Amino acid sequence: MTNPYRDSARRLMRDAALDVAADEVLAHGWDGLQMRAVATRIGVSRQTLYNAFGDKHGLAHALIMRLLDRFLDGVDAAIARESSLRDRWEATVRFVLEAAVSEPLLRAVLTGTSSDEFLPLLTSDGGPLVTRARDHVVASMITHHPDLDPAPLAEVAESITRLVISHVVLPLHAPQEVAGHLADLAVADTRVRSH
């Protein structure tokens, strides 16, 4: 049986810990982040923090997933602003690539001393991130295009998600150019076209 007050307090504590951890990573890098410092700043014991996240790797995972959720909120807004399926794919990719450039925590993940701990959460250990992004994009697209078949749409969404991550990690071209190209790829599969 769940206790709504305890659950709410736990969520507030987790959010506060993630806010502080993000500040600490930006100020001191991943190596400078100490669970003890986070616990002290939010007024809980280290054991409470370990119970919530497991360890520093769990804290890193939680930071990345919270950042993903913020990106997905922006994706929803980008999708809602457009009318055609292709334009929605283009807006989705463009939003993520443009937002990635200006997101300080993501920059720290990709370029700073934090990269050894965080980067696998986007790449080799990125399964949970890819799955959440894929499922979210599928649900958002189907909201606007209910005639789409979810199974092939999920395949396309996963491929586009993986390609977007690749472009975030190693940006070689302008976001607008990449967005147009990936949008063309997304609608090339005739199984994923709205009727």
Results as ranks from 00 to 15, higher is better:
P4H: 09
V130H: 06
D76G: 15
R6D: 09
E103P: 01
R132T: 14
L105G: 02
H61R: 15
V93P: 06
V109C: 08
H28A: 11
A9D: 12
W30M: 05
R94N: 04
G29K: 04
G126R: 06
T123K: 09
E103C: 10
L121R: 00
V156C: 01
D184L: 10
D31H: 12
E155Y: 07
V109M: 12
L18H: 06
A22G: 10
R70P: 05
A27I: 08
L59C: 01
D73V: 05
S8L: 13
E24L: 15
L182K: 08
A154E: 07
V178T: 13
R36H: 13
L110P: 02
S166I: 04
L106P: 03
V192Y: 01
D184P: 05
D135F: 06
S124G: 12
A154M: 05
S194Y: 01
I42Q: 07
L172E: 13
D125W: 08
L185K: 03
L119A: 11
E98Q: 06
L49P: 03
A39L: 05
G29Y: 05
S102N: 14
R70F: 10
D76L: 11
V75E: 03
R66G: 02
A179L: 01
D87N: 13
V156E: 00
L26K: 12
A16M: 11
S45M: 14
L105N: 04
I160F: 01
R107L: 09
I142H: 13
S140W: 00
R191I: 04
H144F: 02
Q176A: 15
H136W: 11
T190D: 06
P128F: 14
T92M: 05
R6A: 13
M65T: 11
R10E: 10
T190Q: 08
R36T: 14
S102F: 10
N51M: 08
R11W: 00
D19M: 09
D55C: 09
